[in-house]
Amino acid sequence: MALARYLLRRLVLSVFVVLGVTMLVFTVAQVVPSDPAALYAGPRPTAALIAKARETLHLDAPLPERFLTFAHAMATADFGVSYKSRRAISQDLAVYLPATLELAIFSTGLALLIGIPSGVIAAARRGGLLDRLGGLSSIVAVAMPTFFLAMLLQGVFCQWLGLLPLSGRIGKEFSVIDPVPFVTGFMLIDTALAARFDAFRDAMAHLILPGLTLAAYPAGVAMRLTRSAMIEILERRHILAARALGLSEARILFGHALPNAVGPALTVIGLSFAYALTGAVLVEIVFAWPGLGRYVSEAILSKDFPVIAAAALVVTLCYVAMNLILDMVQALVDPRVALT
């Protein structure tokens, strides 16, 4: 019961966050010094074209009315058309959002897979060689600029070893010659749905390098947070008790101590997800990844407001949803959370 109340509280909070962001996005659009009508009217606007654009875009309606129209449109996922390309934004998002989400989820998984076990081992071998090596690697991983790491990985795995593809989401043979049907926009899911395992392998290979690049920073953070949490946990009485019961060191570390360290892991998931969702522009450019970051950065440069607004909202929604899931996981793993 406490759990349900806790989750309800979180849900209500999330609704407010989304409302707040909607309002913020709308307000920013009002103060940004640019004329959407001029943009909408095209490259060589005449006064008549601009006036017509003002009418189509309802720019002369009173502010509250325009906000309501805007909020309603957002709520129904009717993001309107891009001022620049005149394409429906929802169609663009259907392609770019899954691409970014797939990369974000994959890199977050990698970050946890690398960061958490190395943090556990560093804590277990505190002060030892592995610990110092891990500490050094985590500093490098956090400090190294992403574009540089991206190029380094490309240099080693594509040009030198020739093991992995240089860029893109999937090879030509699966996108042009014999295309895998678009269902969810997640390459791994679509190829699996089509039972095209060669295509699945190819999509996976394309994910590895951008995934690793994006995972480096959160993995470094994960390692450090896990290490410090584990050092504290390993001092607790119940760990001594587990030792006294004869449990193996591996079971104590991973089965008994680590479940007490879900806090850092969840923090890292949130951080890594947010990082990959919008902070990945450079990575998307270097790896020619058709994602949200590139889409939005172009929109920002051309002040394509509807695109910016739609992307801001969608990213907020993804992030809020992610946090809700994390809260739920935290409450499930540590039953005491819901009681506080």
Binding site: R237, H238, A241, A244, H256, P259, N260, V333, D334
Partner: peptide
Amino acid sequence: SQDPAAALNPV
């Protein structure tokens, strides 16, 4: 040991 609450893993 002395404090059973501390000797058991809370999670």
